[in-house]
Design a protein around this nucleic acid. Structure first.
Lengths: 233, 233
DNA sequence: TGCCTTGTTAAGTTTATGTTAAGAAATTAG
DNA sequence: CTAATTTCTTAACATAAACTTAACAAGGCA
């Protein structure tokens, strides 16, 4: 599921470790989760890549030749666009590294080796999920004689209550969020299906049909040649 | 005043900080308020004490040698009895510590040093007061035709009574606590298994299956692509 | 009328979940 | 402490719901 969720908005992750095996392990797992991954095997390369790639998350090995993780992190923070990025340090459990220094440069967390891919992925997913939640739109919309409730994916009409399948719900929710505003099918696909999922536009029609069947005809209006809108008043 | 109130039901507080002065300051003040206090000066000792003492609240310094506060917190959460405990982090105002990591392990709040004893005590008292008020979801839930009691991990349906294994019970209990609200598998794992235990999401499905087998099909509803909910009415 | 858009239905496809069983892990009993 | 038992987790396969596509019908407008 995380893969699907991540796919809706791909996050950029930069992996930095001097051990190619670890880099590969992480790259493989992150890609499987749907992340956009770049790698580097030392601090200097990492900085170069980071400047162009602008990762949202950097996995940074502490112990590296040349430029160690701490110093790399510090320099990453000097790139203005990366001030908000997450930095997770990788460290061997035994290593006596400097927690203080790590946190000083704004490390968000650290992971002790040996790395357990599943645990790490779960943690990273949680990280981005929390991020996504911040911008969370409301949970409930009351409009016309409907109450649209994300809590249980249901729509209430006075007594009646219907639980909608996911896509139908998201579609209704999205339209109801901006009443009396037309959305083209393309726009709806973009916003609800996601930017990188390609289905025929007519798919929207079918979902609209089902919505009308379930909640009634009076809510969603067709604007021929334009799209659909949630009509009220 | 607080002393008297607290005395009615003594709460256990564990103070962890590598600075003995701070430990003493906090211990003194907490005891004056009527709390049952234990202390530790590093993360490892804290874990030992916690296992036996089972504090309801842990005051945890972030910056500590050996085992830092974040990691200590994480390991505290691994003690099943402490999953519900409050963790308040202590941090110097200037310190760039990790909010993300802190919240990931379920930090409930954090306090910036220098510590103002009166303010802190007030906050802690408020914490427990709120706790006391909480519509105690603690022991028993009656919902639909079920009586779910944590006392003996059993579920009653009229005549019938089933004793459930721990995970199944917790899952049912959690869902029944918020009827008609969907929870994603991820959310359920977070809340029931714990923030840093990583099992496959499909594990939830299997437990749901067993619950349905034992208490019946009519209670837990699947919302495809979303999660599960306890449906009632 | 004839073209173009949408409505409608149903069949096809995909994907998430249901289900079962085997192996790990944790408890309990001995 | 080890063995026995229960519970938990994983993996594999089966099933069903949701979703997508396609095809045809219906309506509107030049």
């Amino acid at each position: 599921m995380s893969a699907a969720k991540a796919a809706q908005q791909t996050h950029r992750v930069l992996v930095v470790d001097d051990d190619p095996d670890i880099v590969e392990l992480l790259e493989y797992n992150l890609q499987k989760e749907g992340y956009d991954v770049r790698t580097a095997t030392d601090g200097r390369k990492a900085l170069d890549v980071a400047k162009a790639f602008l990762p949202e998350l950097v996995l940074l090995d502490i112990m590296m030749p040349q430029l160690d993780g701490i110093e790399t992190g510090r320099q990453l923070r000097d790139i203005p666009e990366l001030r908000q990025a997450y930095i997770l340090f990788l460290t061997a459990r035994s290593e006596e590294y400097s927690e203080v220094a790590a946190f000083e440069i704004g490390a968000d967390d650290y992971i002790t080796k040996p790395i357990k891919p599943r645990a790490l992925m779960s943690r990273i997913n949680a990280l981005f999920r929390r991020e996504a939640q911040k911008a969370d739109p409301g949970e409930k919309i009351e409009i016309a004689d409907l109450v649209i409730n994300r809590k249980n994916y249901s729509v209430n009409q006075g007594e009646r209550s219907v639980i909608l399948p996911k896509k139908e719900f998201e579609l209704l929710f999205f339209l109801a969020q901006s009443p009396n505003k037309v959305f083209s099918r393309e726009e709806l696909l973009q916003k609800i299906w996601g930017a990188d999922i390609y289905v025929l536009e007519r798919t929207v029609d079918v979902h609209i049909r089902k919505l009308r069947e379930k909640v009634g005809e009076g809510y969603i209006r067709t604007l021929k040649g334009v799209g659909y809108m949630f009509e009220v008043e």
